[in-house]
């Protein structure tokens, strides 16, 4: 889950000038035919760079995304919920492994990716810079953030880069459990006692703005790149993904008697499009650039994990070293 709202590098006007025009034409013809690009194939530097960026962001989002939910494992209500949430969080970390593996085939080492996450050079899904205050927040993430990610992932799994598509196919197969589990949790609260309903409604109110941000800036203001669409790096625009999410999930939220904190939210039956209050993109930029409620905490956890794991990696790298009982 979790792959959403990728930030792409702005295109330079000269980006394709240095590329071999014959190889470029062959490359584009292959994509046009619907064939996958494999690691050993020739590809433009821009394609390689943008894909590394996108897959890396997706992988980081999986491990960072495991944090807000992970903290709820010990406090989840009941043994069954604890087991299920543990399985889900474990899945997310596994997804990161698959994605790092796919990004590595493009030539960036896993260690460099982890390093760039810790030093803030690489981004991850902005929504995880917000805290999960209550159990209901964790339920919102399991159901709706996963749902948003599935919209993106299903689109991307039809992209042009072979290893990424194969990783996404495996990931999407596991998502069905996450979605059903999350929905089950939300239904339980929304149809429960007054206090449970209030808790769920408060979570929806808190998470709606980040959820709208999740798909990335509106097409009107985002770095719009036809070439990334043509090369099937990006398969659907941010607004298209957002519309699809609203269409699939707003009715499901409403049918549970929950409200959504946006007076303008409605489907325009004439156009078939959802209308909504334009999300606050300044807030989005501010948070993605480091000034969100949890940015520092999330990276600190990652940094600590990296530091604490170092002795394990070092120990494993010296398999012949033997433990000797201290002499005194």
């Amino acid at each position: 889950m979790y792959g959403g709202g990728n930030t792409f590098e702005a295109m330079k006007a000269t980006a394709l000038v240095d590329e071999d025009p014959i190889k470029l034409a062959e490359f584009e013809a292959r994509i046009e035919r619907g064939e996958k690009i494999e690691p050993s194939d020739w590809m433009p530097q821009l394609y390689r760079k943008q894909l590394i960026r996108m897959i890396e962001q997706h992988a980081h989002s999986e491990i960072i995304g495991a944090l807000p939910e992970g903290t709820w494992i010990t406090r989840a209500p009941g043994f069954k919920r604890k087991l299920a949430l543990m399985a889900k969080v474990q899945d997310e970390v596994g997804h990161a492994q698959l994605l790092y593996g796919a990004a590595e085939t493009l030539g960036k080492s896993r260690e460099d990716m982890i390093q760039d996450l810790i030093n803030g050079k690489s981004k991850y899904s902005n929504i995880f810079n917000y805290p999960a205050f209550t159990w209901a927040d964790s339920c919102f993430i399991s159901w709706l953030v996963d749902a948003g990610a599935i919209v993106n992932q299903v689109a991307n799994s039809k992209g042009s880069y072979g290893p990424y598509c194969r990783a996404l196919e495996r990931i999407c197969a596991e998502e069905s459990f996450h979605l059903k589990y999350g929905h089950h949790c939300v239904i339980h609260l929304a149809t429960g006692t007054k206090k449970q309903r209030e808790m769920m409604q408060a979570a929806v109110n808190r998470w709606w703005a980040p959820m709208m941000h999740f798909f990335g800036p509106s097409d009107k203001i985002s770095v719009h790149s036809e070439i990334l669409m043509k090369w099937k790096v990006k398969m659907a625009s941010n607004d298209e993904c957002r519309q699809q999410f609203l269409d699939m999930y707003v009715p499901k939220i409403w049918e549970l008697g929950l409200t959504i904190p946006d007076d303008k939210l409605m489907k325009n039956e004439a156009t078939g499009q959802w209308e909504y209050t334009e999300p606050d993109w300044d807030e989005f930029k501010r948070v993605i650039n480091g000034d969100g409620p949890c940015n520092k905490e999330r990276l600190a956890v990652r940094r600590k994990a990296e530091e604490r794991g170092r002795w394990v990696r070092e120990a494993l790298l010296a398999p012949k070293a033997k433990y000797v009982t201290p002499l005194a």
Binding site: K80, L83, A84, A87, S176, F177, L179, K180, Y181, H183, H184, I187, H188, A190, T191, E255, L256, G257
Partner: peptide, 18 residues
């Protein structure tokens, strides 16, 4: 089984709520 989507049935509960 709690790790499989099929273990999470919701339709009845939503219907009853409605």
């Amino acid at each position: 089984k709690y790790r499989d989507a099929i273990d999470y049935k919701a339709a009845d509960k939503i219907k009853a709520f409605k």
